[in-house]
Computed example of a mutant assay.
Amino acid sequence: MSAELKKTKITPFAQKLTLPLIKKKIKVLQINLGKRCNLACTHCHVEAGPQRTEELSPEVCKQIITLIYQFPQIKTVDLTGGAPEMNYGFKMLVEAAIATGKQVIVRSNLTVYFRDECASLPEYFAKYKIRIVASLPYYLADNVDEMRGGGVFGHSIRALQWLNQLGYGKNPELILDLVYNPKLPTDQRFILTPQQTKLEKYYKILLKDNYAIIFNNLLTITNIPIGRTKLYLEQKQLYTNYLKFLESKFNSNTVRGLMCWDQLSIDYLGNVYDCDFHQVMKLPAKTLSGTTITVNELLANSSLDVINNVETADYCYGCTAGNGSSCGGALNSQVS
Rank of each mutant, 00 (worst) to 15 (best):
N301C: 10
A313Y: 09
L299V: 01
L298R: 00
D305A: 03
S325R: 10
G322H: 14
N309Y: 15
D314H: 07
V295D: 06
Y317L: 09
P284F: 08
N301D: 09
P284S: 06
E297A: 14
K286G: 02
D305V: 13
Y317S: 13
D314E: 10
A321Q: 08
G324T: 06
G290P: 02
N309H: 14
S289I: 09
T320K: 01
K286V: 08
T294L: 10
D314Y: 03
T292R: 14
V310G: 11
A313W: 03
N308G: 10
L288Y: 13
L288N: 04
S302W: 08
T320L: 05
I307L: 06
P284H: 09
G329M: 02
L299F: 05
G322N: 13
L299D: 03
A285W: 06
N323G: 12
A330K: 00
T291W: 01
A330Q: 00
G329W: 01
T292G: 04
V310W: 15
L304P: 11
G290N: 08
G322E: 10
S289N: 11
L299M: 03
T320P: 05
T320M: 13
T287C: 02
T291K: 10
V306T: 12
T312G: 05
E297T: 13
G328M: 09
C316G: 06
N309T: 14
T292A: 10
T291E: 14
V310S: 14
Y317N: 10
E297I: 04
G318T: 06
T320I: 03
G328K: 04
Y317Q: 11
A285G: 14
N296S: 14
S326K: 09
C319N: 13
A285Q: 02
V306I: 15
A330G: 02
I293N: 12
G324H: 07
A300G: 12
K286C: 09
I293C: 08
G328P: 00
N323S: 15
C316K: 05
A313G: 08
G318R: 05
C316Q: 04
T291G: 03
S289M: 12
S325H: 13
N323T: 15
N301W: 15
N323K: 04
S289V: 08
S302V: 05
N323I: 11
L288C: 04
Y315T: 03
G324E: 04
E311D: 13
N296K: 15
C327P: 03
N308L: 07
G290F: 12
L298P: 08
A321Y: 09
G329K: 00
V295S: 03
